[in-house]
Design a protein around this nucleic acid. Structure first.
Lengths: 217, 217
DNA sequence: TAGATTGTTAATCGATTAACAATC
DNA sequence: TAGATTGTTAATCGATTAACAATC
């Protein structure tokens, strides 16, 4: 008998809800309905209620949800109450881009170090963050207490980097390389693929005829 | 009675298969089995065969698939046989990052222009691509024949930018702003969210106890 | 009370897995 | 032929939708 686990898809949407609530709170709104949340993030109200039912029941029938309370609770569920020290491996175009992206910091993902094999890059700074040699991965991970790593190296280097990260004690990996990674079961792995989204677009644009295709993904 | 549509999830994997095949072809491999493709991209062999069955039957029982043939066919299905002129709206950290990312160009998404409201940025170049004022959106879209746009502006500006893009004749939009967009049915819309992946990681890292949770997403 | 909105159930829909006959 | 691997079917699993009783 399974505990009622929170479905993957639900967790993803909780992230959206929590950001919507952060905004609502900033705007001084104290109560929202599932309908309002739904409109705010682009899903159905039934979906919102179903998702929230996985994590608890804080709504008031006939009234809605307390913004402050729900927001605080979702952040807790998502593990966002304390900052996550994070590193980026690979100071190429993508790695540099992500290192400079403020969105991460705003939600508590603090980029503490960047790594690269290119000696030309090592020692320089990116957006105030130092670039280190890959040799020093273990040392710097320990020093920065980083628990999350973002991999932005070419596909053929990704597994070896992942191995190094695991050895150095990293607990979560977000992989931007288009290559499957094998990690021990205690390490959490997530895959991001920027190209995939564009290729989905491409597919649907070149479909032409099929008007019955939905237009969102 | 529905035509056998290709499921969303399948299209996403076709993108992976096609990149795997591109690599295999480069390495001079002429034949692959569903098992080899599966290992290469990190899914099951049954999944690969099922996915491919949606787009046709080119395998040879007892042998496998012809790399060259299958690769060519997948590119065609995905609409990647001709380049896609693309623009980026928003020259902030993320937009700049994406503009500089070579992965897009390699698969045929050619960034032709970047747009921003900041007069400080307008006129400068990013990775050889000129930054234009948002006022000139329509004009430049026409001049560059761009059909795809990537939105990298703050959430509160995203809908208005989307409206402008639609008016200017853009056919596909990849939205990086954490905000739902409304576009006419003939415009294809895709949503990308860098934070969501990190927050999924965060959730699973702070889960702790639940060891029965899978470790990939 | 009447109106509103939640939380939950059951029905539907879609995606994945496993198994195997077909066939190279 | 024997061995290998596809293409497809049926079974399973998971996610979404719709409807509504509960209740503020």
């Amino acid at each position: 008998m399974r505990m009622k686990e929170i479905p993957q898809a639900t967790v993803a949407r909780l992230s959206l809800y929590s950001r919507f609530l952060a905004q609502a709170q900033k705007n001084g709104i104290t109560t929202v309905s599932s309908e309002e949340i739904a409109r705010g993030v682009g899903v159905s109200a039934a979906m919102v209620r179903k998702d929230l039912s996985f994590v608890g029941t804080f709504g008031i029938r006939g009234v809605g949800y307390n913004v402050r309370e729900l927001h605080r609770y979702l952040l807790k569920i998502l593990g966002l109450t304390a900052p996550w020290p994070t590193i980026i491996v690979g100071a190429g175009k993508l790695g540099s881009a992500l290192a400079a992206y403020d969105g991460f910091r705003e939600r508590g993902f603090q980029i503490r170090a960047i790594f690269d094999i290119d000696p030309e890059k090592v020692g320089h700074k990116l957006n105030g963050i130092e670039i280190y040699s890959l040799d020093r991965l273990s040392e710097i991970i320990k020093a920065t207490k980083a628990s999350i790593a973002i991999i932005c190296v070419p596909a053929n280097r990704a597994q070896s980097v992942a191995d190094d990260l695991v050895r150095a004690g990293i607990r979560g990996i977000l992989n931007f390389a288009p290559s499957p990674l094998v990690v021990p079961p205690e390490v959490v792995l997530c895959h991001a693929d920027l190209l995939m989204n564009l290729e989905l677009l491409s597919f649907r644009l070149s479909l032409g005829r099929k008007a019955f295709q939905t237009n969102a993904c």
